[in-house]
């Protein structure tokens, strides 16, 4: 038996909007530690990893570990039927081939339930070791989204370079080139508006902007984003989900032929 009650149901709506364009079908894994997902995009160059810890749910019952295969477009359609302030409960029996999403209005005067068929999805699970990154940039998530959007009107790839002067996002295309430099500004009043750079070594990597733009769909989840880079690893773009966990995107770099 699985029963997960999430008071801030809008979080789940935002998570689905943030991953459904990157991944079509995925297994949601549920265990006593929480609700998680790991899935690669169809090209096998980007990966999304979600964790919603059990203690972030108002009620979390998971009698035995379950993996529930779902089409993310279908889940997204279904969650669009929930209002932003609805409480969402996910229910499934241990051997069931369906999952039920229940939406309760905050005043408890409207209760809707939607049953969805589960899918059998064979997905490759990747072992991602904890790593020390050469550079970690933390910046406002809206600023990062704006930069990715602006650069993609000029080029297809972005070079992200971190030095002690700041982080530089560069692109070039048929019409010309662009560079955007963000400097550290940790003295701003609100911490979520700060750009901070932890640099052990300077690093410069090239990525496809199409994927970066797709990652920025997670912007509504968090006011800040962290970008962790090492020259020998995929970049990690992480959006923290308040009090509950994270949504991380991994993207393999492009290298010069």
């Amino acid at each position: 038996m699985l029963e997960l009650r999430l008071v801030q149901g809008s979080l789940l709506k935002k998570v689905l909007e943030a991953i459904k364009d990157l991944v079509t079908d995925a297994n949601f894994d549920c265990s006593t530690s929480g609700f998680s997902l790991q899935a690669m995009d169809s090209s096998h160059v980007a990966l999304v990893a979600l964790l919603l810890r059990s203690d972030g749910f108002e009620h979390f019952r998971c009698d035995r570990s379950l993996s529930m295969g779902m089409n993310l477009n279908h889940v997204s359609k279904l969650l669009k039927c929930a209002s932003n302030d609805d409480i969402i409960t996910i229910k499934a029996d241990d051997d069931a081939d369906t999952v039920t999403f229940m939406f309760e209005s905050p005043r408890q005067d409207k209760i809707a339930d939607f049953e969805m068929k589960l899918m059998d999805i064979k997905s490759e699970h990747l072992g991602i070791p904890e790593a020390e990154y050469q550079s970690i940039v933390k910046m406002p998530s809206q600023e990062f989204a704006r930069i990715c959007k602006d650069l993609s009107s000029i080029g297809d790839t972005v070079v992200i370079s971190v030095t002690k002067e700041g982080v530089k996002f560069s692109t070039r295309g048929d019409i010309g080139s662009a560079n955007i430099v963000c400097r550290q500004n940790s003295t701003v009043d609100k911490p979520e508006e700060a750009t901070t750079i932890q640099m052990k070594e300077p690093v410069s990597l090239t990525f496809a902007l199409r994927y970066m733009n797709s990652f920025t769909k997670a912007t509504p989840l968090s006011s800040s984003v962290s970008i962790s880079m090492s020259s020998d690893l995929p970049v990690v773009v992480e959006y923290k989900i308040a009090e509950m966990g994270y949504l991380r995107y991994y993207l393999a770099p492009k290298i010069e032929d």
């Binding site: 690669m40 980007a46 990747l126 072992g127 995929p234 991994y250 393999a252 032929d257």
Partner: peptide, 14 residues
């Protein structure tokens, strides 16, 4: 010319 690396180059399949 840049070529895209696959994730499997970095992470092992479990």
């Amino acid at each position: 010319i840049f070529i895209q690396v696959y994730l499997a180059v970095y992470f092992a399949t479990l």
